[in-house]
Every structure is written in structure tokens, then in C-alpha cells.
């Protein structure tokens, strides 16, 4: 099968919650005292047993991902759905090699570009021009690639005359536009996109969406994490629904969305 872009097999990621607190040694001690006090209180309360079970740190570890297996073909655009803490971001972090899985493995055919958080690597003291180069290189572009795309990026970001001002003087909206403009000009075959459309400016948001659509139309592979159902629907045909680190649905985007909306745990509370 030559047309597989991403294949994951039983991917799992374990996080230790009670792990000795990193950082200063004294914090480790403080943490211990605090936790034992907490345990004391939970033990004293009338429904102690219940509390113990519900206590999020009662388990020593948590599988942020467990037995996640799926395949994505070249040219597919797949949405990743799930509530906070379902494991969406961890999945993208594993696929972009920021963090390692605890078990299982993944194969990736092609270069990966990740837009995990817009503006990563921006430095406030540097100008917009300088930050385009810096952020582009951090996202995996060579200086030559950035140079050839420079004008396009500037035009897309609509920052105009501010290009040679330190970006600490930019509004947060402008910083977001510049960051998105850099990220969207990445060239790799596979793009991992995490919640980058959290942009307030509506007209710019439209522009970003249509740029992303263009990327999908070019036949590139896209994994797209978003809480925005409309943008998911316009970009993807397929979605993977994660719940507590496991895949609970993989298929048609509309079914996935309705399943996601019906299974809202917040509604139960």
C-alpha cells in the first residue's frame, strides 16, 4: 500500500499524575504534605469512598491515549473530535514527534508540518520581518523557502507597514494573523493543525478557512483538531472521535459530529 500517509498501531501515552513533582526539591515535600492533607479531608467526609474514586489524582497514572489505531491516506482531510482531555492534542504531539508514545507505533510517509499553536517561537523584541524567518525555521522551513514565500506571507497577514516594528507593539490579533500566515505557507505533504482558527477577526477567519480548503484541494493530507464544527464540516469528510484517549468513532464527519454532540459529558452534570 503506497498511498498510506499515516498509520498508527495501538498508540498509547501514559502520564503519571502522582509522579514526584518536578522542579524544586522543596516543592516535592510541600506537594506531599498538601496531598496527605487532602486525603485526610476526603477520608473524613461522609461519602469518603465515593470521593476517593472520583478524585482525579486517586489513580496514579492516566492513559491520555490508549490503543489508538487508524490509517489516513494521502490526500485525506480528517477531523479529530473530542472533549477537552480526550487526547486530541497528545495525538498530534506524538505524530509531530514532540513527545514519544508509551506504547504502539506510528508510521508517517512524508514530511510533517505541525501548526500546534500559532505563534510558537515568536520573540516580542524582534520585528515582524525577523519573526517570519524565525517562526518559519522553527516550523521546519529553510531560509531559502521562507525567502521565496516572504512576500506572500506578508500579503496574507495584512500587517502592512508594521512589518519592521517589534511585534511587542502589535495587537494580539495582528500577532495571530502574522503567525497564521507563516504556518499556512508550510509546504510538507502532511499537515497537523490544532485549533488554529481561534481567531476573533471574522473576515480573517474566512480567509484562513479558504486557505486551508485550498490546501486540502491540492491533495495534501490534513489532520485537523477543532472545536468549531462548521469549519470541520467544510474541511473534512471523515472524522475520528476520541473519548478518554480511545477512538469511539471513525467515519463520516456528520455522524461523528452528531455523536460528539450527543455524548457531551457536561450535559450529564
Amino acid at each position: 500500500m503506497g498511498n498510506i500517509a499515516i498509520r498508527t498501531v495501538n498508540l498509547g501515552k501514559l502520564f503519571y499524575l502522582n509522579q514526584k513533582k518536578r522542579g524544586k526539591l522543596r516543592e516535592t515535600l510541600e506537594e506531599k504534605i498538601r496531598l496527605s492533607l487532602k486525603h485526610l479531608f476526603t477520608a473524613l467526609s461522609p461519602d469518603a469512598k465515593k470521593n476517593e474514586k472520583k478524585h482525579p489524582f486517586a489513580n496514579k497514572h492516566i492513559w491520555a491515549l490508549k490503543n489508538v489505531s487508524f490509517e489516513v491516506k494521502h490526500g485525506e482531510a480528517v477531523g479529530i473530535l473530542g472533549h477537552n482531555g480526550a487526547g486530541k492534542s497528545v495525538l498530534l504531539k506524538i505524530l509531530s514527534q514532540v513527545t514519544k508514545p508509551t506504547e504502539g507505533y506510528a508510521e508517517i510517509h512524508g514530511r510533517v508540518g505541525a501548526m500546534l499553536e500559532v505563534g510558537t517561537g515568536f520573540h516580542p523584541e524582534l520585528t515582524g520581518r525577523e519573526n517570519i524567518y524565525l517562526s518559519g525555521a522553527i516550523l521546519g522551513m529553510t531560509r531559502r523557502e521562507i525567502k521565496t514565500k516572504f512576500d506572500e506571507i506578508v500579503e496574507f497577514s495584512e500587517i502592512g507597514d508594521l512589518l519592521d516594528m517589534p511585534i511587542k507593539y502589535y495587537s494580539s490579533g495582528m500577532q495571530g494573523r502574522l503567525a497564521f500566515a507563516v504556518a499556512v505557507h508550510l509546504e510538507p505533504e502532511i499537515l497537523l493543525i490544532d485549533e488554529v482558527l481561534a481567531i476573533e477577526d471574522i473576515s480573517f477567519k474566512e480567509k484562513c478557512l479558504s486557505k486551508l480548503k485550498e490546501i486540502v484541494r491540492e491533495g495534501r493530507t490534513v489532520l485537523f483538531v477543532s472545536h468549531n464544527m462548521d469549519s470541520l464540516k467544510t474541511l473534512c469528510n471523515r472524522a475520528i472521535l476520541l473519548e478518554r484517549g480511545k477512538i469511539v468513532f471513525d467515519g463520516d464527519i456528520k455522524k461523528a459530529i452528531s455523536k460528539y454532540l450527543s455524548g457531551n459529558p457536561d450535559a450529564k452534570l
Binding site: 503506497g2 494521502h74 508517517i108 510517509h109 491533495g219
Partner: peptide, 26 residues
């Protein structure tokens, strides 16, 4: 989109583009 890779010629193009394989493991 997937059909792009269906003919031998296209597969060949795919191969000469020589997409790097990355293995991610613990």
C-alpha cells in the same frame, strides 16, 4: 485525491518523490 496514486506511472512519481518514512515508537 487518493486516486492520484492508482496508475503505475503515478506510483512511480510517488516513489521518486521519495517521501521519507518516519517511524514513531516508544
Amino acid at each position: 485525491m487518493v486516486s492520484k496514486l492508482n496508475t503505475p506511472g503515478q506510483r512511480y512519481m510517488y516513489r521518486i518523490r521519495n517521501l521519507p518514512l518516519t517511524l514513531i515508537h516508544p
